[in-house]
Design a protein around this nucleic acid. Structure first.
Lengths: 171, 171
DNA sequence: TATTGTTATACTCTATAACTATA
DNA sequence: TATAGTTATAGAGTATAACAATA
């Protein structure tokens, strides 16, 4: 389709303090969702600066750690990405020796992905950093509220059977 | 800082149906936030196809409609964007005659932004389309739940005074 | 015929920096 | 000295399409 989304791009201020009124925008779910996403992304950037690990790369690293032998397509589906985009992402992680590809023995088309010792160390460092980042937002909620928020978000991204998408959207 | 985020980029499937387990990712707020954002963005794309109006462009159009005479910097702050990025965005809306710039009389540095008749028509069409899009998600919540969700999201993107950002982040 | 991975390509969005004109 | 706008530039991330190897 197009190209340009996912995480917010980056820096400009987090607190908007202008006299602009939102108007109808106030009622748009996607608007609030995006601002929240931007806020979290910007804090992530500040917190994880120097690690050179984007949220998506981090996610893939963790997914490979949790699911040794997963394929690129598995991950692409999981993160709602294109297989070519995932290719580029995995290439970056492989280039810094955080993960490695091994050809599957049962299906020689597949490249199974595994985290390396180096990757484990990177993940460990990243996770520690992320804790403080996550806490900055989670601290604004009680345990119950947080669970509720997450369940609401899941309700949004878990497709209901009644939501008709493009017919060949299955890929 | 970097460059590449905000809305999800686009198409690949909305329902991930792989055997990959999320692991620790399950506890990451930003992860759920991003997937929700992707889901909403993708549905937006499908619904608004043909209008050539990105969510951000749409937001700016509405903001100008609601706040006649607002400046680019006002809008940039409101949407957490860079002023140069906003420039490009406003240029697009101006190129299709949806809005117009008028030099401020009190401060000749400022360009005040106004929606045009054409822009109003575009906004009207877009809003009508968006209604079905929004409904697809809002229908998954009761009125109370929806209000709660929005308030949670606001809690995320409304910076608390205790959240120290970069010192010159005020922009 | 379908699937996994791959490559090349083009596109969009964004920020950075430097500049101008005003204030 | 600071602000609004402007321009040019470069960078990251993504999707599309075509292709190879394998199933």
């Amino acid at each position: 389709m197009d190209a340009s989304q996912d995480a917010p791009t980056s820096s400009p201020s987090t607190s908007a303090a202008t006299s602009v009124t939102l108007g109808e925008l106030e009622n748009i779910l996607g608007f609030h969702l995006r601002l929240a996403n931007v806020a979290v992304f910007q804090d992530y950037q500040v917190t994880m600066a120097g690690l050179s690990l984007t949220p998506k790369q981090f996610a893939v690293l963790e997914l490979i750690e949790t699911n040794p032998g997963a394929s690129q397509i598995d991950l692409a589906h999981c993160l709602r990405m294109d297989k070519a985009s995932m290719m580029a992402l995995v290439n970056k992680l492989e280039a810094r020796h955080a993960i490695e590809r091994r050809q599957s023995e049962s299906d020689r088309r597949r490249q199974e992905l595994f985290i390396t010792t180096e990757g484990l160390a990177l993940a460990k460092t990243a996770k520690k950093l992320r804790e403080t980042h996550e806490a900055r937002f989670k601290d604004r909620f009680s345990a119950d509220e947080l669970a509720e928020l997450v369940s609401y978000l899941q309700r949004i991204y878990t497709s209901t059977s009644t939501t008709p998408l493009l017919e060949d959207e299955v890929d």
